Lab assay of single mutants.
Amino acid sequence: ELVLALYDYQEKSPREVTMKKGDILTLLNSTNKDWWKVEVNDRQGFVPASYVKKLD
Protein backbone atom coordinates (compact mmCIF):
# COMPACT_ATOMS: atom_id res chain seq x y z
CA GLU A 1 0.00 0.00 0.00
CA LEU A 2 1.22 3.51 -0.79
CA VAL A 3 0.96 6.68 1.27
CA LEU A 4 1.51 10.32 0.35
CA ALA A 5 3.61 12.63 2.53
CA LEU A 6 1.47 15.65 3.43
CA TYR A 7 4.32 17.51 5.14
CA ASP A 8 8.10 17.48 5.37
CA TYR A 9 9.40 15.39 8.27
CA GLN A 10 12.97 15.31 9.56
CA GLU A 11 13.92 12.15 11.40
CA LYS A 12 14.70 12.67 15.08
CA SER A 13 16.00 9.17 15.86
CA PRO A 14 17.56 6.25 13.94
CA ARG A 15 14.19 4.45 13.97
CA GLU A 16 12.56 7.22 11.92
CA VAL A 17 12.95 8.29 8.30
CA THR A 18 13.02 11.70 6.65
CA MET A 19 10.42 12.50 4.00
CA LYS A 20 9.48 15.51 1.92
CA LYS A 21 5.98 16.77 1.19
CA GLY A 22 4.74 15.02 -1.95
CA ASP A 23 6.86 11.88 -1.49
CA ILE A 24 5.15 8.56 -2.21
CA LEU A 25 6.11 5.99 0.43
CA THR A 26 5.46 2.28 0.80
CA LEU A 27 3.38 1.59 3.91
CA LEU A 28 4.71 -1.41 5.82
CA ASN A 29 2.73 -1.25 9.06
CA SER A 30 -0.11 0.99 10.27
CA THR A 31 -1.18 -0.87 13.43
CA ASN A 32 0.07 1.97 15.66
CA LYS A 33 -2.28 4.94 15.36
CA ASP A 34 0.47 7.52 15.93
CA TRP A 35 3.52 6.13 14.08
CA TRP A 36 3.42 4.25 10.78
CA LYS A 37 6.32 2.20 9.45
CA VAL A 38 7.19 3.11 5.88
CA GLU A 39 9.92 2.52 3.33
CA VAL A 40 11.47 5.42 1.44
CA ASN A 41 14.69 5.47 -0.60
CA ASP A 42 15.50 1.87 0.45
CA ARG A 43 15.26 2.82 4.14
CA GLN A 44 12.62 1.59 6.57
CA GLY A 45 11.47 3.56 9.58
CA PHE A 46 8.67 5.39 11.30
CA VAL A 47 6.89 8.64 10.45
CA PRO A 48 4.00 10.38 12.25
CA ALA A 49 0.74 8.87 10.97
CA SER A 50 -0.81 12.35 10.84
CA TYR A 51 1.84 13.41 8.29
CA VAL A 52 0.82 10.84 5.67
CA LYS A 53 -2.35 9.78 3.90
CA LYS A 54 -3.22 6.47 2.26
CA LEU A 55 -3.56 6.54 -1.52
CA ASP A 56 -6.56 4.74 -3.00
Rank of each mutant, 00 (worst) to 15 (best):
E16A: 06
V38D: 00
T31K: 11
V3E: 02
S50Y: 09
D23P: 01
T26F: 14
K54F: 10
K33E: 11
V3C: 12
P14T: 10
D34E: 13
T26Y: 13
W36E: 01
K12E: 08
N29S: 13
P48Y: 02
T18W: 04
T31N: 13
K37Q: 13
D42P: 06
L25W: 03
N32K: 07
E11G: 15
M19H: 00
N29G: 07
L2V: 08
A5K: 01
V3W: 09
T26R: 15
K21D: 02
D23C: 07
P48E: 01
E39Y: 08
E1N: 12
K37V: 13
K21F: 05
D56N: 13
D56A: 13
Y7R: 15
S13C: 10
A5V: 10
P14C: 12
R15A: 12
Y7F: 14
Q10A: 13
K37I: 14
S13G: 13
V17N: 04
E11I: 06
S13D: 11
L6H: 03
Q10K: 13
Q44N: 08
L55H: 07
W35T: 03
Y9D: 00
V38L: 04
I24N: 03
Q44V: 14
V3A: 12
F46S: 03
V17Y: 04
D23K: 03
G45Q: 02
D56M: 10
K37E: 14
L55S: 05
P14F: 09
Y9H: 04
V40P: 00
Q44M: 13
W36C: 04
W36I: 05
V38A: 01
K20S: 09
Y51D: 03
P48C: 04
G22M: 03
D23I: 04
T26S: 11
N41W: 11
A5R: 00
K33G: 10
N29E: 15
V52A: 02
A49C: 07
Y9I: 01
K37L: 15
L28I: 13
W35G: 02
K53V: 15
V47S: 00
K20H: 11
K54Y: 10
Y51I: 07
T31H: 12
W36M: 04
D56K: 11
N32R: 10
E11M: 12
Q10P: 06
T18F: 05
S30L: 05
M19V: 10
K12W: 04
W35A: 02
S30P: 07
V3H: 04
F46M: 09
I24D: 00
S50A: 14
W35Y: 07
D8Q: 04
D56I: 11
K53D: 08
E16F: 06
V47G: 01
